[in-house]
């Protein structure tokens, strides 16, 4: 199954089939999510209207971690099975994940000012997410730092695997340390501690963001494969021309 999609043509055929559906779902889910988030859900009795920031903040925080996990898994697949498309997907996902992380940090900061009375505190959750953002930047910088693209994608894949130790630290930081950031309220074994009227927009946005991530990764991976193809064709033509003029 995995090896079938090591062939870029086959991968592109699947990607092109998925793309319109994923795009439609993204628009539908985020549209509905925004409608519920801003119109059809109640304001919180303590937080007031600022609770609506959560409908962007929480899904983007999930996506920030999901994107890094995606990169780590794709990097492992690329390193172990020498799967070329896996590296392309990892590189395609990195700037998107970095954007989600930045959105998460910014919206969290905007929410923190009226709620906690401060833009930023150095507690475990916030600090570990900031480190995640730095890891994304390091990954992107390392992948683009070499003249030989193959070298960059392998080196950055090793970095992605080592940086993955940060993910459990982010997830459990609110349990391990006594932090200002509240502990998990959705992913609990018993009922979620969030009322249904607020859970609906949250879940709609979460699935919508996942679809958005899929769409963006496909578009970027497609562009990257096309770019490589153009480069390969160009160097093949130069080779043919030099061979011709040499004869």
């Amino acid at each position: 199954m995995l090896h079938r999609f090591a062939n870029p043509t086959r991968f592109l055929r699947l990607a092109n089939a998925v793309l319109p559906w994923a795009t439609g779902l993204t628009i539908l889910l985020i549209g509905a999510g925004l409608y519920f988030a801003f119109g059809a859900s109640p304001a919180d009795y303590q937080q007031g209207e600022t609770v609506r920031i959560m409908y962007i903040h929480v899904p983007s925080a999930w996506m920030a971690m999901f994107a890094y996990a995606f990169i780590a898994v794709a990097s492992a697949v690329g390193l172990i099975w020498k799967h070329p498309v896996a590296h392309v997907c990892a590189l395609a996902a990195a700037p998107i994940g970095a954007c989600f992380t930045l959105i998460c940090l910014t919206t969290g900061s905007l929410w923190g000012k009226p709620m906690w009375g401060t833009w930023w505190v150095w507690d475990a959750r916030l600090t570990s997410v900031l480190v995640l953002f730095f890891l994304y930047l390091g990954f992107i910088a390392l992948a683009n730092a070499f003249d030989d693209a193959a070298r960059g994608e392998k080196a950055s894949a090793i970095l992605a695997l080592i940086g993955a130790v940060n993910l459990p630290i982010i997830k459990f930081s609110v349990d391990w340390w006594n932090t200002l950031h509240q502990p998990a309220s959705i992913s609990r074994i018993d009922m979620p501690a969030v009322h249904t009227s607020m859970l609906i927009p949250l879940l709609l946005m979460a699935v919508g963001f996942t679809m958005l991530f899929t769409v963006l990764v496909i578009i970027r991976a497609r562009a990257e494969l096309a770019d490589r193809r153009i480069n390969a064709l160009r160097s093949a033509r130069i080779h043919a021309e030099t061979a011709h003029s040499g004869a």
Partner: peptide
Amino acid sequence: VLLSLLVLPL
């Protein structure tokens, strides 16, 4: 510069 970006967060 790259080295600092890789090592300092870790």
